[in-house]
Each structure stands twice: as structure tokens, then as C-alpha cells.
């Protein structure tokens, strides 16, 4: 059961598909299924990368994967077998590709739940102690995961809620 601090305004069917997509993909890449934990209230210190990918279907929403340097380096090393410097272009490229692979599985999981989700190309942002600030009207959901080499978080955001009524599970 998720901790009550998790935001719950996001459509549950989409949340289920998205979290399943993340967990299945990372299990497949790492041979280790990420475990859900309560998200930290404060943003982690230090350099970070955020990879964002959007979906268009019954609703428009985005998935943002946020990783710190130690987690990003370890994740990419397990993904492509290369220990890349965190501040390099290839690191951003690889994190973008990981979120792209996750998005492919999310699309499949949406389809299994009778929803559509055409995905965009990924965008990767680099910064210090990144925080994603959502508009008040945006529906959002934040989930944090633990892997053997560290924690990371994922945020789902959707602007406007008028289309949610058409979604299964809502």
C-alpha cells in the first residue's frame, strides 16, 4: 500500500499503467525490480538529470524521471555497459533513451487497460537539486523508488482534468 503522502489526483488507471511500465522496464534492464518508497519531501542536493516524455491519448500527460549523479551513473552503466561521466552528453542521451524504453512499456500497459498513449521524443534537463513545480490546476502523481544503488523519483503531470471522466477507473 502506498504511503498517504503520495499525491492522488492523477487518474488511477494511468498511474497503474505508468508505474507498471517503469517497474517492468527497470527489472528487464537491471535484473532488479525497483521497490516503491515514500518520496522525500526535499529535492536531493547536487547535480541531477530529468528526462521528460509526453503521452497523447485520452489525455495529455508527461512522465519525468529524475536521477542524481550516483544513481544516473549506475543506471546507465547497467543499461549500456559503459561508465559514463555524469556531466557528459552521452549520459543525457542514455538517460533519455532509458525513459524512451520505459515509455514504450507504459504505452503497452496503457493499451492493456484499453487506453491509448502515443509518446513523444524524450527531453533531458540537467541542473542542481531539480524540483518540478506543477501548476495548481495540474493533476500530478509522484512516486519514489529504491534500487540497490540508490533512490530515484518519477513524476506524472497532466494539465487540465476535463478529459479524465472518459478514462477507465475514474
Amino acid at each position: 500500500m502506498l504511503a498517504p503522502s503520495f499525491e492522488t489526483s492523477f487518474p488511477p488507471a494511468v498511474t497503474e499503467a505508468a508505474t507498471a511500465g517503469i517497474e517492468i522496464t527497470l527489472d528487464s534492464i537491471l535484473g532488479e525490480r525497483p521497490v516503491r518508497v515514500s518520496p522525500a519531501v526535499d529535492a536531493p542536493e547536487g547535480p541531477m538529470l530529468a528526462a521528460i516524455i509526453s503521452f497523447i491519448g485520452e489525455m495529455k500527460w508527461s512522465l519525468t524521471l529524475m536521477v542524481t549523479e550516483p544513481v544516473g551513473v549506475a543506471l546507465v552503466e547497467r543499461f549500456c555497459g559503459l561508465k559514463l561521466p555524469f556531466d557528459g552528453e552521452d549520459m543525457a542521451d542514455a538517460i533519455g533513451e532509458i525513459v524512451n524504453v520505459i515509455a514504450g512499456e507504459v504505452t503497452l500497459q496503457l493499451e492493456k487497460r484499453r487506453m491509448r498513449g502515443r509518446m513523444s521524443l524524450p527531453t533531458v534537463v540537467r541542473g542542481q537539486a531539480l524540483q518540478l513545480i506543477a501548476n495548481r490546476s495540474a493533476a500530478s502523481y509522484r512516486v519514489a523508488y529504491r534500487l540497490s544503488f540508490g533512490d530515484f523519483s518519477v513524476r506524472f503531470l497532466a494539465a487540465g482534468t476535463s478529459l479524465f471522466a472518459r478514462l477507465p477507473g475514474k
Binding site: I29, E97, N100, V101, G104, T107, E111
Partner: peptide
């Protein structure tokens, strides 16, 4: 060689576009 993996995309690639094979990432 793509992250797409839905049946519709696989059919579009193999049957409509004429691809010889389809591999999902990873």
C-alpha cells in the same frame, strides 16, 4: 529496433511498411 511494442505498431511495421523484423528495446 524500437521501444514501441504494441501489437498495432508491430503490425504496421511488418505488414504495412514491409519491415523484415521487429525488436523491442531493451
Amino acid at each position: 529496433v524500437t521501444s514501441e511494442k504494441t501489437m498495432g505498431k508491430i503490425q504496421e511495421a511488418l505488414d504495412d511498411a514491409g519491415a523484415e523484423g521487429f525488436i523491442s528495446k531493451p
